[in-house]
Simulated scan of single mutants.
Amino acid sequence: MYLIKTPWLLKKLYPQLIWNKSKADRCIYLTFDDGPIPIVTTHILNILKQYNAKATFFCIGDNVAKHPDIFKQLTDDGHAIGNHTYNHLKGWETDNKIYLDNFLQADKVLDTHLFRPPYGRIKRQQIRDLQDTRPDIKIIMWDVLSGDFDINLSPEACLQNVLKHTEAGSIVVFHDSLKAYDRVKYTLPRALEVWSKVGFSFCPLPL
């Protein structure tokens, strides 16, 4: 069970987290979690380039260590980088010290103050620990969840998820993972085409 559109009440309960940006600039903030992954991340980069779109990639430290060439392509193409822990840890099920240490292990590789907790699951104490350790940290959540990770979701349903719920200032979650590949490679170019025609631009999250 997951929600495509983040409810306002959840945003209100965690105001210290970033759920969306200002609507004033007519910008959509595309984000991609769990990479870099061969073939998948590269394909996404090619699609983004066709639409002159910049995005933010929340990278798993272990994947960066395995695929440094793809990670370099992310930065060379001008996309923003975020920390997604070193081993994709679920905060609710992880000891606070282990969670912080895993974040710091990834931070050595990524050196970014953008962070997204895997699965969106993070304890309040873990939030405080991250903020105490790295005072400049921005913990990024989302406004729209595409559902591309859901193997039971059709590519067309994934497309409709984002087209229906995305608006100016939305932070939208996709995944550059093997599990999401069928849906993201279908949805991303079609959504970019629609959004471009109505005047949206595609921005990386501010560093």
Rank of each mutant, 00 (worst) to 15 (best):
I44L: 13
I47F: 00
L48Y: 05
L48S: 04
L48D: 03
K49V: 03
K49D: 14
Q50I: 02
Q50E: 14
Y51Q: 12
Y51E: 07
A53G: 06
A55R: 05
T56L: 07
I60C: 15
G61M: 12
G61W: 10
G61I: 12
D62V: 14
D62N: 13
N63P: 01
N63D: 10
V64T: 07
V64Y: 11
A65I: 05
K66E: 07
K66I: 00
P68T: 08
F71Q: 00
Q73T: 15
Q73H: 00
L74A: 04
T75I: 14
T75H: 02
G78M: 10
A80C: 02
N83M: 01
Y86R: 00
N87Q: 13
N87K: 12
H88F: 07
H88I: 07
L89C: 00
K90P: 00
G91W: 06
T94I: 02
D95N: 15
N96R: 04
N96L: 04
I98S: 11
Y99S: 01
L100P: 12
L100V: 07
L100S: 09
L100C: 02
L100N: 12
N102G: 07
N102Q: 09
D107H: 15
K108T: 05
K108Q: 11
K108W: 00
V109R: 06
V109P: 00
L110T: 03
D111E: 13
T112P: 10
H113C: 14
L114D: 11
F115K: 12
F115S: 05
R116F: 02
R116E: 05
P117Q: 03
P117Y: 00
P118G: 08
P118W: 01
P118D: 11
Y119M: 14
R121P: 01
I122N: 03
K123W: 09
Q126V: 11
Q126N: 09
Q126G: 10
D129V: 05
D132H: 14
T133W: 00
T133N: 09
P135Y: 14
D136E: 15
D136Y: 10
I137M: 08
I137F: 06
I137G: 02
I139D: 04
M141F: 14
D143N: 13
D143A: 05
V144A: 06
V144I: 15
S146L: 03
G147Y: 05
F149P: 03
F149C: 01
F149W: 14
F149S: 12
I151L: 13
S154W: 09
P155W: 08
A157F: 12
A157N: 15
C158L: 03
V162Y: 06
V162P: 03
L163R: 11
K164F: 00
T166L: 03
T166S: 14
A168N: 15
G169P: 05
G169T: 08
G169Y: 06
S170P: 10
S170K: 07
V172I: 12
V173H: 10
F174M: 04
F174H: 05
